[in-house]
């Protein structure tokens, strides 16, 4: 009895469902990461925006113009989208170091700036061109939303990058940046987890990564098995959610056809 009371005070039973779902998610991720990845290689469907990444870097190199990469104003470093963006930055930086193309990275967050500097520096070292790394190209511009937008717009207008990567969490500044990029005829690859900004990017950019494609991007580009395994974990979870929704819809339909009250067991 004492153990039961102690356990009740330790565990908030209102959150039991969340706890169980979290455990399932962790187990699926561990399974795909440590067991499944040893088996046959896992491939991701063709994503046009990602196929264009190398072309965009090549274009900037051929035109002898810089490449601009910015993760948007809406996120900070703890946001998974920003971490996914850093993964893509790592790939892009490897390529720009090999092609000796200037990579300009303005951001609104000092911590993102520090992480991006490390990511880019590491990529340049990995490819054997540490001397091509320019720290002053990766800068903090302003924490204010439209201060950031004005600063990035200014950089785009003055340096006229041949390619622009808008990958991260964007808010109202998205269309301002994308249209400015369009006005200088830059090739633009965008991707965000902000559903409302996706509509702006789709209209104004050449390629748009929709939501989770951004998370899959780093695995797609690098072929990193751990990242690919987590994409596989997402797919398994998505199938489970879809099955759950289908069962709940059928259940609710049958209950309502029988004229009874809905049990709402799915609202745990």
């Amino acid at each position: 009895m004492i153990i039961l009371i102690a356990a009740q005070s330790l565990f908030n039973s209102d959150r039991l469902a969340t706890f169980l779902i979290s455990l399932i998610a962790i187990l699926i991720l561990l399974y795909t990461t440590y067991f499944q990845k040893r088996k046959k290689p896992f491939t991701i469907r063709k994503i046009n925006g990602l196929k264009a990444v190398e072309d965009a870097i090549g274009r900037a190199t051929e035109m002898a113009r810089p490449l601009l990469y910015t993760p948007g104003w809406g996120g900070d470093i703890q946001r998974p989208t920003t971490i996914a963006s850093m993964n893509i930055l790592s790939f892009v930086a490897e390529k720009t170091s090999q092609y000796d193309c200037d990579l300009v990275f303005p951001t609104h967050d000092p911590v993102i700036m520090s992480v991006a500097q490390e990511v880019v520096k590491e990529s340049y070292s990995r490819t054997g061109y540490p001397d091509r790394y320019k720290e002053h190209n990766i800068t903090y511009v302003s924490s204010s939303q439209f201060g950031y937008a004005a600063a990035v717009d200014g950089i785009i207008s003055r340096t006229k990058p041949a390619s622009i990567f808008l990958l991260g969490t964007f808010e109202a500044e998205s269309l301002i940046l994308a249209e400015t990029g369009n006005s200088i005829n830059a090739i633009q690859i965008a991707g965000t987890d902000s559903t409302i900004q996706l509509s702006f990017f789709i209209v104004a950019c050449d390629y748009t990564l929709i939501g989770e494609e951004l998370f899959a991007a780093s695995g797609y580009l690098s072929g990193n098995k751990s990242i690919l395994a987590s994409v596989q974990a997402q797919d398994i979870m998505k199938i489970l959610i879809a099955l759950f929704v289908i069962v709940a819809v059928i259940w609710a339909t049958i209950e309502s056809l029988n004229g009874g009250q809905l049990s709402y067991w799915w609202k745990f």
Binding site: A25, I26, L29, R79, P80, T81, I83, A84, D193, T195, G211, E212, L214, F215, A216, S230, V231, A233, Q234, M237, K238, I241
Partner: peptide, 11 residues
């Protein structure tokens, strides 16, 4: 999709 992507990235 975004939620699942965030979840796996965080994990």
């Amino acid at each position: 999709g975004i939620g699942l992507g965030s979840l796996t990235t965080s994990l």
